[in-house]
Write a protein that binds this DNA or RNA. Structure first.
Lengths: 240, 240
DNA sequence: TGATTTGCAAGAGCACCGCTCTCGTTTGTT
DNA sequence: AACAAACGAGAGCGGTGCTCTTGCAAATCA
């Protein structure tokens, strides 16, 4: 049977679900995920707490929805920043613009950042639905690395002389992930894959340290430090 | 007046304080900091919740005490690992042993790690008492870097050609920190300071990603990945 | 030694939390 | 019109951090 016209109830349900999410998201910018109170967001949308359970089975399910929204919001920001570089051969520009977009979004959404990249709720395992949105950021970085090597603008990053061998197996999962998404666009070298993962962790490690206060007393100018950091990371990666 | 012999009350107070901390610490290994319940630790030590407030003015104060204990525990582990390398000129050995000690401690104390390096409680600012213990880890790393350059075993790390200038001001705080501790042992070069901070954030970024589940699907062998990572970080730092 | 001040554990209580259940009411379907 | 599903509101359960009062024991003073 055709069901094109949504019934009023369906429409209301979608709207209210969005209202709850918006209220929770608003609270998340000023508070941390652990302090998010389901009763408080219920009050914000003018409902009684038990009514929220008609839309989200538990607080964790609400957090999961926010998690996905957060990953998508961050991912969209970074993708848009990357797209804004019209000269696709400008690897340096794409790299810095994407990295800066990650940091800008994180600073603008500290609560969401803590939810995405801070300590997870111990008993809570992120469901499968989150891994897709979660890979959007690293996908942009990987695409830049691949393009850099495809156009010949990059060199194979240098491994330390005494580095242990057998890298192929340790980063095999990452290389498989890339190959599974685009057969033609592969991280052809394990050293590149290794360096890409390192770059990724360094960028987020830096942002976490900045937002969580661990760089106080070490770094005076966060903007400048971040720019210098991504230049060096890109250099070590072989793309700058 | 001499007060060498502690009165029974003082002795009891110290013991009970230690009992509470031990119980809280035990709960912290299995739970996260956000889930630590003051009432639960009170039950664990056979007290009523209000009695705990005789020893800690608030839950945050208890967390602060655990924070200091955690930094000291991690710092002591890393310092001991560094000390275990009898050949002080073996920079490579000292570097890998110290880095591995950080990771081992973190894996053995996931709850404490989340407290130290995870998302902080939003309204909670770590008091001054914590910064001393908090600097023990980075101090070991800095000492290794300084020794590497003092003995001439290291090179000045390479800056990317197009890197922005004016680094001295962005990492001035770090260089001042080192100089303030030991006038003779200084990070003589801003590039070295910059690279040392980067190494530090990369190491903790990697551990956070591993413990918080962000490397699932990218890294297959965490032990091997970490070893490869610290080799490259040390190489980029110029000490390996 | 006796009186008094102090430290402390216990309990009741407040406001909040996540979550469950029941109970009328509204909405959609047949 | 009759029935079923969805829904909002409310009460309630056990939990939380924290405050206040009460009574007792320990330390100090006279």
């Amino acid at each position: 049977m055709e069901q094109k016209a949504k019934t009023a109830r369906q429409r209301a349900r979608e709207e209210i679900t969005e209202e709850i999410l918006a209220a929770a998201r608003a609270r998340l910018t000023s508070q941390g995920p652990g302090e998010l109170s389901l009763r408080a967001v219920a009050r914000d949308v003018g409902m009684v707490s038990s009514a929220v359970y008609r839309y989200f089975a538990s607080r964790d399910e609400l957090l999961t929805a926010l998690l996905i929204e957060g990953y998508d919001s961050l991912g969209a920001s970074v993708e848009e920043a990357d797209r804004s570089v019209t000269d696709r051969a400008d690897i340096s520009g794409r790299w810095s613009v994407a990295c800066r977009a990650i940091r800008s979004w994180s600073i603008d959404h500290p609560g969401d950042y803590a939810l995405l990249y801070g300590s997870p709720v111990p008993g809570y395992a992120a469901p499968q639905d989150t891994i897709g949105p979660a890979t959007r950021v690293i996908s942009v970085l990987i695409a830049t690395v691949i393009d850099a090597h495809r156009t010949g603008a990059a060199r194979i990053p240098s491994a330390p002389p005494a580095a242990p061998h057998g890298m192929e197996s340790t980063v095999a999962a990452a290389m498989d992930f890339v190959k599974s998404r685009d057969e033609s666009a592969l991280l052809s070298d394990a050293e590149i894959a290794m360096r890409t993962i390192m770059a990724w962790t360094t960028i987020f490690g830096t942002i976490s340290f900045e937002l969580f206060g661990h760089l106080v007393g070490s770094v005076s100018d966060y903007d400048a430090y971040f720019d210098q950091m991504i230049a060096r990371v890109g250099h070590d990666l072989g793309i700058l």
